[in-house]
Computed example of a mutant assay.
Amino acid sequence: MRTLVAMPEPTTPIETIGLFPLHAVLLPGAALGLRVFEPRYLDLVRDCSRTGRGFGVCMILEGEEAGTVTSAAAYGTEAAIEDFGTGDDGLLTLRVRGRRRFHVHRVRVRDNGLQVAEISWCGADAVEPLRPEHGLLATLLHEVIEKFGGEHASAPNERFDDAAWVGWRLAEMLPLHDTQRQALLQIEDPHERLQQVLSLLP
């Protein structure tokens, strides 16, 4: 097993998680569809289905999704499998949902090419009301959802006063670059995250 990343030893408890690097950013609460065909990821999905655990999604910084080992961002999101099936091409399809954020401290590569990371979990977002300076963002989110619909169309009104939820949904639904989404993923404070979203608006 080869070590790809070595960083200072973390002071918080660590766990291990299999990684599924992508040219995309999975955000907490967001859904993502995947097609799985490489043996290393089929094995990962099988293990997760058996144990009930999720796997980690990190944005690729260098390399491709298939084939060679990639270099991925040091922050990612746990993916929980919500549904699975078979596509028209016979490949396994997954629908996953973003859960907890994590910080990667070290990555090792198994013989089958699967990256396994030692991680610490980031703190959960506190439920805090929007600050007055971010009220415009709740209005914007309402307008985006009304225009495009989707699974968040039935969200209760109180969600639109939750700073963390509003920030994640705007990061999910606005036409941002993945590098911008990754930067938002790495921000700990939900109000700071909203301020960053505000700065990205034209």
Rank of each mutant, 00 (worst) to 15 (best):
H134S: 07
V107C: 02
C122K: 10
A117V: 02
W121L: 13
R100I: 00
R131L: 15
R99F: 00
L137I: 06
L91E: 14
V96I: 14
A124N: 09
E133F: 03
V104R: 01
R131C: 07
L140T: 08
R110Q: 15
R108V: 13
V116N: 01
A138N: 06
H103D: 12
V127D: 12
V104C: 00
H134T: 01
R99E: 14
R110N: 11
V116I: 14
R100H: 12
A126G: 09
I119D: 09
H142F: 10
D89V: 07
D111R: 10
V127H: 12
G135Y: 10
R99M: 13
L92A: 11
V127T: 12
D111I: 01
V104S: 04
R110P: 00
V104I: 15
R108K: 05
P132A: 04
E118A: 10
A126R: 14
G135S: 13
F102Q: 08
L141T: 00
H134R: 06
D89T: 07
A126M: 02
L130I: 02
G98A: 07
G98R: 08
Q115A: 11
R106K: 12
V127P: 01
G90R: 10
L91I: 09
R131Q: 15
A124E: 14
V109N: 06
V116Q: 04
H103L: 14
T139P: 00
E118V: 09
A124F: 08
R106V: 00
H134N: 13
R95F: 05
A124T: 12
G135M: 11
E133A: 08
Q115S: 10
H103Q: 15
W121V: 11
V109M: 06
A138C: 10
F102R: 05
H134C: 04
E118M: 09
H142Y: 08
T86Q: 14
L92W: 04
G123Q: 13
N112C: 01
H103A: 15
H103V: 14
L140W: 05
R110T: 08
H134P: 03
T93K: 06
Q115M: 13
T93D: 11
C122T: 09
R97A: 11
L130N: 05
P132N: 04
R106C: 03
P129G: 06
D111N: 10
G123S: 13
D111E: 15
I119P: 04
H134F: 10
Q115V: 01
R99I: 07
G113E: 05
G98N: 08
V96F: 08
G113I: 05
D88P: 09
G123R: 15
H142I: 03
G98D: 11
H103N: 11
P132C: 02
H105C: 08
A138L: 07
L136I: 10
V96E: 09
R108T: 12
L130W: 04
H142Q: 13
V127A: 12
T93M: 11
D125S: 05
P132R: 06
W121F: 14
